[in-house]
Amino acid sequence: MPGTITDDIEIIDAGRGGGTDVPSGGDDDGDGHGGGGLPAIPQRAYFTAIQLALAGIVMFFMALTSSFLVRKGLGDDWVSFTLPRILWANTLILLASSGAIQFARARLRSGDTQGFRRWWAITTALGALFLVGQFAAWRQLAAQGVFLVTNPSSSFFYLLTALHGLHLLGGIVALLYVTYRPWQRSRITQSTAADLVSIYWHFMDGLWIFLFALLYLGR
């Protein structure tokens, strides 16, 4: 049987393989935990990872969304309730925080550390405010006698807001991490970290708008 063989090429660099283009950000002397330093990796790996993480999160929320639609379509017990008005305010707050994080990144790029820190802190505060606002919405609903088990519509409301809030809380932790991380001893650069967090943050913003639309239109 005849076979075809591709010729060996002297040096092929077609792959995105690492090696040469690794910035020497890797610390040689460990990170203070007993000398177990990690090998350096290209910064683009962090961007790959965040995209993959978002893909996983999309699947998670898509499963819940289809459950929402199926449950609403199948059951004859769906009772709609008025969404608390504070959600609109919360949405504006979250949108504003997305704007703030863009300002922060712009400041970082132009080397304005002070400005970056200020806008970064504003983003964090707005994020925290959003969570407080979501909690307030829960309190309002509870005051109206609408609880998790009241109706599938309220079950989904509490569940989706809680899971989104949990993810956003992770975003706030990441924001704080970027604020307090000592970059000189890290294999991820500050600008990469800021970019990653902002990608995640914008995504959480978009996810909220999607969920809000789902909850609003699918009441």
Binding site: I12, G15, G17, G18, T20, R44, A45
Partner: peptide
């Protein structure tokens, strides 16, 4: 992202 040089 971590393939060696030439590992297409």
């Amino acid at each position: 992202d971590l393939r060696a040089k030439g590992m297409t």
